[in-house]
């Protein structure tokens, strides 16, 4: 019971006293300044972010920023902020595009020690209490192409969250979630697998027998899955890219159908067309060979020019 209520209760036997006290209190309250707008405008998202930041700091972490874009919220540290801020809008658009209705809200957080080697990006659906997805960051965000790496890790975490809410049949078939952004996992490997595989359906598919290609990707309902999980992930990603908005919802809509039918529903076209597109991309892939890393060439040219400049500028010495 508050102090005012106690006083009013004690004054109840005295006629008119309680009303007089109440009028005085109201007039005094009117003279006080209004409560701060910042304190009254806190929404649940801001409160959650503050709670997460406090929990991280009490555990020795250093979260400093909350980035929000559409259905994605990211708690990050000073070091990673710039990199993730650049790709969060793209991730948000890709995530939202997978669902026919409003996309589920996702909470992402950078966790780990201050020296970079133990950092992890974790993710959960906002209504979940525990983080359900994680991928290791390592020190790659300080490497030569942090944006591509950040795009890939965010894609991996979002892919894990996608699969976390899929039916058991899809989870068993796919194992790793399809990444909604970044280079699809397995796109680089597919050309190598197609070139080197000795499995019968894959060899036949590679050599031009298109009727054997669905079996190579595990779409024929058989137990043998010749191509790797990464190749199947690339196939699902191709279906999501081709299907446009709501493709993921359509993929989940009929869990009792065959994987081939589900991919067709998601992509809006037969899975053979998706396989043809992947095969054409793999055939055109030039990720191998000596020219695979052009950065090394430019760096070498730079060092060459520097050495020549030093010698020519310094001249020859006895």
């Amino acid at each position: 019971m508050s102090s005012l209520a106690l006083i009013l209760a004690l004054l109840q036997p005295v006629p008119g006293a309680a009303d007089s006290v109440r009028r005085v209190v109201d007039r005094l309250t009117a003279l006080l300044p209004a409560p701060s707008e910042a304190r009254t405008a806190l929404d649940s998202l801001t409160l959650e972010a503050q709670a997460a930041r406090a929990a991280s700091e009490s555990a020795g972490g250093t979260l400093t920023d909350t980035l929000v874009n559409g259905p994605l919220t990211l708690l990050t540290t000073r070091v990673e902020r710039r990199v993730f801020a650049d790709i969060l809008p793209e991730a948000s658009r890709a995530w939202s595009g997978l669902f026919a209705g409003p996309a589920p809200e996702v909470w992402l957080e950078v966790r780990g020690g201050p020296w970079g080697s133990a950092r992890t990006l974790v993710g959960r659906h906002r209504e979940d209490t525990a983080f359900r997805a994680a991928t290791h960051l390592g020190v790659r965000l300080r490497g030569p192409d942090p944006e591509s790496f950040a795009r890939r890790v965010v894609g991996e975490v979002l892919g894990q969250l996608l699969l976390d809410r899929a039916d058991p049949g899809l989870r068993d078939w796919l194992v790793f979630g399809p990444t909604p952004i970044g280079q699809p996992a397995g796109a680089e490997e597919l050309s190598y697998q197609l070139a080197t595989s000795v499995a019968p359906a894959t060899r036949a598919c590679r050599d031009g027998d298109r009727s054997r290609c669905p079996a190579a990707f595990g779409l024929d309902g058989g137990t043998t899955k010749e191509l790797s999980l990464a190749a199947r992930g690339a196939l699902v990603r191709a279906a999501l890219d081709a299907g446009g908005p709501g493709a993921w919802d359509r993929l989940l809509a009929q869990p009792d159908r065959s994987m081939s039918d589900r991919l067709a529903a998601a992509a809006g076209r037969p899975p053979e067309a998706l396989i043809d597109r992947l095969m054409a991309r793999a055939r055109a892939d030039r990720s191998g060979g000596p020219g695979a890393d052009p950065l090394r060439w430019w760096v070498a040219a730079g060092w060459l020019a520097l050495a020549l400049g030093v010698v020519a500028g310094g001249g020859i010495r006895r």
């Binding site: 050309s191 190598y192 197609l194 070139a195 590679r206 050599d207 793999a282 055939r283 892939d285 030039r286 191998g288 060979g289 000596p290 020219g291 060439w297 070498a300 040219a301 060092w303 060459l304 050495a307 020549l308 030093v310 010698v311």
Partner: peptide, 29 residues
């Protein structure tokens, strides 16, 4: 050549030339 394999004769020769020049220039200096 098997399907999905590619040949890189020009890239190989160019990389060899650039690598030799890189070592040559560092040693030259």
């Amino acid at each position: 050549r098997a399907a999905f394999l590619h040949a890189y004769p020009t890239a190989l020769a160019a990389k060899f030339g650039l690598a030799t020049l890189a070592v040559f220039s560092a040693s030259f200096a």
